[in-house]
Amino acid sequence: MKNIFKTLVVTVFGLLFFQLENVSAADNVTVDIAPQTVQIGTFYNGTTVTISGSIPAGAEAVIRLSGAGEDLHLKRKGKVGGVLWMNVGDLTYHNAPNVYKLLTDASTNDLDNSAARNYGFTALKNRIEISPDNGETDFLLKEFVRLKTEDGMYGIMPGTISYGAAEGGMKSYTGTIDIPPGMTQGAYAVDVVAVQNDTIVGTSSSSLNLKQIGFPEQLSAMAFGHALWYGIMSVVIALMAGLFMGLMFKDKGGAH
């Protein structure tokens, strides 16, 4: 009975200690995103977002911007008859984030071998599942990261985080990230990790929202909500544009 009581007390204190440590880990890293919501209007062509906050003075910051997971259907290229390169099979990448960008300071040059490796591209191995599994998952994942990096949706950007002066055991950090116009509307997770002496000493999370407004928003609503009418409208306007241009050229004596 005495032993059971001892175990209970130790467990309760252990849990309390774990909770307290977590609170302090979250509290010693703050994150602020400006702007928190990016508005996609008629003439939108991407933008820049600033992520800032504070971390322990001796730590280095790593910022990850990641989008929601989606199932992507791709084709596997291969050689047919030893001569022609063409699509030789279908692949599905399950739970693949549509965006995955990492910001580091100038001194962090090997994220995959640092304490923050679970926030880098290595983490994608546990996150993305590729089917069918042909025993070449590592290669196909590398190719996927290369393809998405080429599209501007994935990437590591070293040297994009700068620090302010240390004060009261804390220092400020600022990271700037380019939001390409191809990033679609939705919520994106922003995670900040503070790494000190090869250990994660704090993390914090927030979210960045991209939202269509005005004309793009109205047009999207029509295309998805009233698809048939949207199609008919598109055709009628194209017909009228063609007729108008035809008549304009006639008036100018273009065609006889």
Binding site: L72, H73, L74, K75, R76, K77, M86, L147
Partner: peptide
């Protein structure tokens, strides 16, 4: 040429 030359990526979007 696209069929004969080695592609830049071994996967492609559908």
């Amino acid at each position: 040429a696209g069929l004969l030359m080695t592609p830049d990526f071994m996967i492609a979007m559908k």
